[in-house]
């Protein structure tokens, strides 16, 4: 896995500190060209991975990358699926089953349709799961997606329900069909590790908030630090700045001290911020983070 991953919250009006800031960012990145400019800046600064939600607008980014394979030959996507608000808003309007049905493929081969219908009829959760994953992955066709993540709202819903089989279904399909490594985003990392271990998913890639103030680290910062140091998984740190509550230097120094963290994901809206953050990570990592 690459050690620095570029995130996408800033592009889609997600900001955990301020709705006004979120809206200003959504406006700034309304034109996909503005998104691509920032991605280009990150790529040119040596950040090769875009860890992104399967938001429909990412499709336009994918089109752009596909159109210039030479320029983007090292560019990788780590898709995070699904874009949950799409499902949540549809479920409010249509009910859960109808919402699911509305996201299953309509077009294409007859057998896909048939499989969809059969799946719903026979309660073949595995079949439905595979179709939903395929629907989310469609936009990345022909692009590199070596790691595919399950979004935290889904991971944590399944974790809470105790629907463990779903993690196996996800992991198997991502490996078998996309030749990718499965990743899991969660707000409840220690609990998730217990379940993934139980399922025999070895050394799983798990992305969670890891920050100095313990923001949204359920189970507590001490449990997280112990898990990172001692458990058999590949930690990816997100929300390292806790939405701006911690200064960049302090934030990155803390994260880099957690020696087994494999990757850090961060978002930024300008080349200057990207460069500064990358420089800080490079400064703290080589000497202090042996496993990178």
């Amino acid at each position: 896995m690459e050690r620095i991953l570029f995130g996408d919250n800033q592009f889609f009006g997600v900001n955990h500190m301020s709705e006004e800031k979120a809206r200003a960012q959504a406006m700034k990145f309304q034109d996909i060209k503005a998104v691509i400019d920032v991605l280009d800046a990150a790529y040119d600064e040596g950040i090769k991975v875009f860890m992104c939600t399967t938001h429909e607008r990412i499709g336009e980014v994918c089109d752009h990358m596909r159109a210039d394979p030479e320029r983007y030959k090292d560019f990788q996507f780590y898709p995070c699926m699904p874009y949950a608000h799409k499902y949540a808003n549809a479920a409010t309007e249509l009910g859960i089953l109808e919402a699911l049905r509305s996201f299953l493929p309509e077009e294409g081969a007859f057998n896909v349709m048939l499989k969809g219908g059969m799946s719903l009829a026979t309660k073949d959760v595995e079949g439905i799961g595979q179709l939903l994953i395929d629907a989310e992955m469609k936009m990345f066709q022909g692009l590199q997606t070596p790691v595919i993540f399950l979004q935290n709202v889904v991971t944590d819903l399944l974790l809470g329900l105790g629907f463990k089989e779903a993690f196996r279904i996800f992991a198997d399909h991502v490996k078998n069909k996309y030749n990718a490594e499965p990743g899991f985003i969660t707000m409840n990392m220690p609990k998730l590790l217990d379940v993934l271990e139980e399922l025999g998913i070895e050394k799983p890639i798990v992305c969670s908030n890891i920050n100095k103030i313990g923001f949204r680290m359920c189970g507590g910062i001490d449990t997280y630090e112990t898990a990172i140091a001692g458990r058999n998984f590949r930690p990816v740190a997100m929300s390292v700045f806790a939405s701006g509550a911690i200064s960049p230097k302090e934030a990155l120094e803390y994260v880099c001290k957690q020696k087994k963290i494999e990757s850090i994901v961060f978002g930024a809206s300008s080349r200057q911020n990207i460069r500064q953050t990358k420089q800080l990570i490079d400064q703290f990592l080589p000497t202090e983070c042996g496993t990178f």
Binding site: H16, M17, G160, M187
Partner: peptide, 15 residues
């Protein structure tokens, strides 16, 4: 005042 300073930790987070 930001959510990061106003929010108490919960044992389990969903949404």
């Amino acid at each position: 005042r930001y959510t990061t300073e106003l929010t108490d930790e919960v044992w389990y987070y969903l949404r």
